[in-house]
């Protein structure tokens, strides 16, 4: 692409991206719109923001959303109790309200001198109205503090990445303003690259065996929670550390507990797979 300034994000050395994802990120940066990322758990939604920050060499501000988070908290908090408390001693000038205004994560991102990456993590955790409450601030990239009469305006529009687990539907008005990307579960080829980023010296045979086993486990629909990328990485780490022989990986599936996190899944796995192994094992002999 000839246009300079568009192809900004190319992934970073420790985060492998697909073309579609790179494109979405670059569109979001160029159009200065928030990027909404959705996908299965463990596909690296949160890590994407870290990667953008590293890839573009910018500071990352993370705003973790909880079920009790209010939009206002992201802008600023006026600490009235502190002010009241200080009023008793007279050692501070409490008429200056500004010292009791604490900027939230969004406010911090706006007030920052340089361009930053702002990650709003798991936006769907909060109340239904939460995203709508932020619409104006994200559009205008400014907000007004009535207590001090100040307006905080972003000197550089932050690059905003928002992740969602699709636990709740997001309001349409909010969606309209976002650039959307769905992180698909990586195919084996991409997964190989991802694993290599984490374990540059991994032996080819071990990697092949591990991936084959991993994808065959993912094919089992009866699991409540299918193993995802982060579980695979953990599992391979254990495999390397334990020095398991390669041929045992597919045959025994050792340390399956690090792949299957739900008790029911693990029990199911032990019951079906291990039993099958025993019966086939005896017929081999």
């Amino acid at each position: 692409m000839a246009n300079d300034g568009f192809d900004k994000f190319k992934g970073s050395h420790d985060y492998v991206t697909s073309e579609a994802l790179r494109n979405a990120v670059n569109v979001a940066i160029a159009l200065k719109r928030p990027l909404l990322v959705r996908g299965e758990p463990g596909t690296g939604k949160t890590l994407l923001a870290h990667s953008i920050a590293r890839g573009l060499d910018k500071r990352l501000i993370v705003w973790n959303i909880k079920s009790t988070t209010k939009a206002q908290e992201g802008l600023y908090v006026y600490d009235t109790v502190q002010r009241l408390n200080d009023s008793r001693f007279g050692d501070k000038d409490i008429s200056d309200i500004r010292q009791y205004i604490k900027l939230g994560k969004l406010g911090e991102a706006f007030a920052s001198k340089e361009e930053v990456v702002l990650l709003i993590d798991e936006v769907d955790k909060a109340d239904l109205e939460f995203p709508n409450d932020l619409l104006n601030e994200l559009d205008e990239m400014s907000f007004y503090i009535p207590e001090t009469g100040e307006t905080i305006v972003a000197t550089h529009r932050p690059i905003v990445a928002i992740t969602s687990n699709a636990e709740k539907e997001l309001p349409d008005a909010f969606l309209r303003r976002c650039i959307f990307h769905y992180i698909e579960f990586p195919d084996p080829a991409l997964m190989e690259e991802i694993v290599k980023v984490h374990f540059p010296d991994i032996r080819g045979n071990l990697l092949r065996q591990a991936l084959a086993t991993f994808y065959s486990l993912r094919k089992i629909d009866d699991f409540r929670k299918k193993p995802s990328t982060s579980e695979l990485i953990d599992w391979i780490r254990v495999l390397i550390a334990s020095g398991t022989p390669d041929e045992a990986i597919t045959a025994d599936i050792p340390f399956a507990g690090s792949l299957l996190k739900k008790e029911t899944d693990y029990a199911y796995f032990i019951n079906t797979f291990m039993k099958k192994k025993q019966t086939t094992g005896t017929s081999d002999n």
Partner: peptide
């Protein structure tokens, strides 16, 4: 990709 990212939510 561009159109999908912008149009489909």
């Amino acid at each position: 990709y561009l159109a999908r990212a912008i149009l489909v939510k």
